[in-house]
Amino acid sequence: MYEGSGWWRGEPEIINGAIRLKKNTHINFYQFFTGVTEEADPIMPHRALIRVQTVKDAVDFVGKYGLLGLWKCKPYAFSEVNLKINFIIDEDRRGEMDFYFQWQEPISLFMLAVREFRETAEALMLSEPATDDFKATRREALNSLDGWISECHPATTAGFTDFTNFTEFKARPIWHCPSLLHACYLGLWLDLTEGRKLRRCADKYCERLFYADRPNKRFCSEECRNRANRRAHYHRQKDKALSSCITDL
Rank of each mutant, 00 (worst) to 15 (best):
M1T: 06
Y2D: 10
E3Q: 07
G4P: 05
S5V: 01
R9T: 13
G10S: 15
P12T: 02
P12Q: 01
I15G: 08
A18C: 14
I19Q: 15
L21Y: 04
K22S: 14
K23S: 15
N24C: 12
N24W: 11
T25W: 05
V36S: 13
T37W: 14
E38F: 04
E38A: 04
D41K: 14
P45M: 04
P45Y: 01
I50P: 02
R51W: 04
V52Q: 10
T54W: 01
V55M: 14
V55C: 06
D57R: 08
V62D: 15
G63N: 14
G66S: 09
L68I: 10
L70M: 06
K72R: 15
C73Q: 09
C73G: 06
C73P: 06
K74V: 12
K74G: 01
Y76A: 08
A77W: 05
F78M: 14
F78K: 13
E80A: 13
E80I: 12
I85M: 03
I85E: 06
N86M: 09
F87D: 08
F87C: 04
I89N: 07
E91R: 08
D92N: 12
G95P: 00
D98N: 03
Y100M: 09
F101Q: 08
W103D: 01
W103T: 14
Q104W: 02
P106F: 04
P106Q: 13
P106G: 11
M111V: 09
L112W: 07
A113E: 10
V114E: 11
E116Q: 13
A121D: 01
E122C: 04
A123E: 07
M125N: 05
L126T: 03
L126I: 02
S127D: 08
E128S: 09
E128F: 13
E128C: 03
P129F: 12
A130R: 15
F134T: 10
A136G: 07
N143S: 02
L145A: 08
W148H: 09
E151Q: 15
C152L: 13
C152G: 15
P154A: 01
A155L: 08
A155Q: 06
A158V: 11
G159T: 08
G159W: 05
F160S: 12
D162Y: 00
N165P: 00
T167D: 06
E168S: 04
K170P: 03
I174A: 03
I174S: 02
C177R: 03
H182T: 00
L186V: 00
D191M: 05
E194H: 06
K197N: 01
R200A: 01
A202R: 03
A202P: 03
D203E: 10
D203I: 01
D203S: 11
K204F: 11
L209S: 11
L209Y: 11
F210D: 14
A212W: 11
D213N: 15
N216L: 14
K217M: 12
E222I: 06
R225W: 06
R225P: 00
R227P: 04
R231G: 09
H233E: 14
Y234A: 01
H235D: 01
H235C: 00
R236G: 00
Q237C: 05
K240G: 00
L242R: 01
S243I: 00
S244F: 09
S244W: 13
S244G: 00
I246V: 10
T247E: 08
T247K: 13
